[in-house]
Amino acid sequence: MPTHGSLTKAGKVRGQTPKVQARERHGDISMTRNKDNFRKRFILKRVPGQNKPGQKRRK
């Protein structure tokens, strides 16, 4: 069974691609995120998914 390409050319394109530095990522502070989630779920009575203003909570 013939192979698709040779192993001598493996990784050729990746090796030629210039290295791009990753951007710095920083998310919310976990305490703030948890507080927001608590407010949405229990105080505003929102359910997971898209919530429209005035939408009733599913039971």
Rank of each mutant, 00 (worst) to 15 (best):
M1F: 10
M1W: 08
M1A: 11
P2S: 10
P2F: 02
P2I: 11
H4V: 13
G5M: 03
G5C: 02
G5I: 04
G5D: 05
G5T: 03
G5V: 02
S6P: 00
S6K: 12
S6L: 09
S6Q: 10
S6I: 02
L7F: 02
L7W: 06
L7Y: 03
T8K: 13
T8G: 06
K9E: 12
K9C: 04
A10K: 13
A10V: 10
G11A: 09
K12Y: 05
K12N: 05
V13C: 02
V13W: 02
R14Q: 08
R14I: 09
R14C: 07
R14N: 06
G15M: 02
G15H: 04
Q16V: 01
P18F: 01
P18C: 07
P18N: 05
P18H: 05
K19L: 12
K19R: 12
V20W: 01
Q21I: 12
Q21E: 15
A22C: 06
A22T: 03
A22K: 15
R23I: 11
R23V: 11
R23P: 06
R23K: 15
E24W: 00
H26Q: 13
H26M: 12
G27A: 14
G27V: 08
G27Y: 09
G27D: 05
G27M: 11
D28L: 15
D28Q: 15
I29E: 13
I29Q: 14
I29F: 07
I29N: 12
M31R: 15
M31Q: 13
M31G: 06
M31H: 05
T32N: 14
T32K: 15
T32Q: 15
T32G: 06
T32W: 07
N34M: 13
N34Y: 06
N34S: 11
K35F: 05
K35R: 15
K35I: 04
K35C: 09
D36V: 12
D36S: 14
N37G: 07
N37D: 09
N37S: 10
F38T: 04
F38A: 07
F38V: 07
R39H: 04
R39I: 09
R39P: 00
K40S: 08
R41F: 01
R41A: 09
R41C: 06
F42N: 10
F42S: 01
F42T: 04
F42R: 12
I43H: 00
I43M: 06
L44D: 10
L44T: 00
L44E: 12
L44G: 00
K45T: 02
K45H: 08
V47L: 05
V47N: 14
V47C: 07
P48N: 02
G49W: 00
G49N: 03
Q50R: 15
Q50N: 15
Q50V: 15
N51S: 08
N51M: 05
K52W: 00
K52Y: 00
P53K: 10
P53C: 00
G54E: 07
Q55H: 07
R57D: 01
R58G: 08
R58C: 04
R58F: 05
K59D: 04
K59T: 05
